[in-house]
Amino acid sequence: MSAKVINITMNGLPMEVYEGMNVLEAARIMGIDIPTLCYDEGLSSYGACRLCIVEIGPQDRTKVVSSCTYRCEEGLEIRTHSKRVMDTRKMILELLVCSTPGSKTIQDLAAAHGVITARFKPEHEDCMLCGLCVRMCKEQMMATAIDFAGRGPDRRITTPFDEASALCRHCGGCMFICPACSSRCMGPDADTTLCSSCLNLSPSCVEVYDHQQCWMPPGCGTCIRPEGDYLPATGRISEVKTEA
């Protein structure tokens, strides 16, 4: 029953892991924080968000792979926070924050990685196609009501033929796991896409709104506004305000 133990090197430190374990799991055992968007412990690895990339291989010919889909192998050398990795992560977060600014998860990640510029034309997409909901539906809810459709720029998550699916049980699992639906953010300055205020505001919106689960009904997406300008769009924000 016991899996084979193999040796790897993580950020220069030797480490023993079970064969078949992916690099992300190994790093988390070591307490190394690798950011992820499309990964969830209870679901299969997908490798869509590319935030969990790490650099592997010997110093002179390294390559960059997504740690959630790459399995540990004997003698593997891994660098989780090399310059190349960090620069790339920052650029991906800049892309994310410009296209999906309404997700607090993304705003938090961007702030934590020091993304201070948002140089691309603002878009307000609700979905970054991480596919958590698709896997939730298929693997945990055994429903296969939604899936990816289209290719490239037309790629989207939908039901077959965009019609109500007979297989959907309205369990809400997809919304529960969605990093855009489950916590919304528009920033104190909604004209730009970059918020970063979670770390600067006092109290920070992380503390105030962390327990909030706004399931993205129409009209939501405004969790922080300047003082006295709260929109009681969903009825929940005022609740929080009184609590605070």
């Binding site: 296969t144 009501a145 939604i146 899936d147 990816f148 459709a149 289209g150 290719r151 037309d154 039901t159 077959p160 033929f161 699916s165 297989l167």
Partner: peptide, 14 residues
Amino acid sequence: FPINEIYGIVTFYK
């Protein structure tokens, strides 16, 4: 074969 996968395939290939 799940219909959502068929829909995915049909919209994937040009």
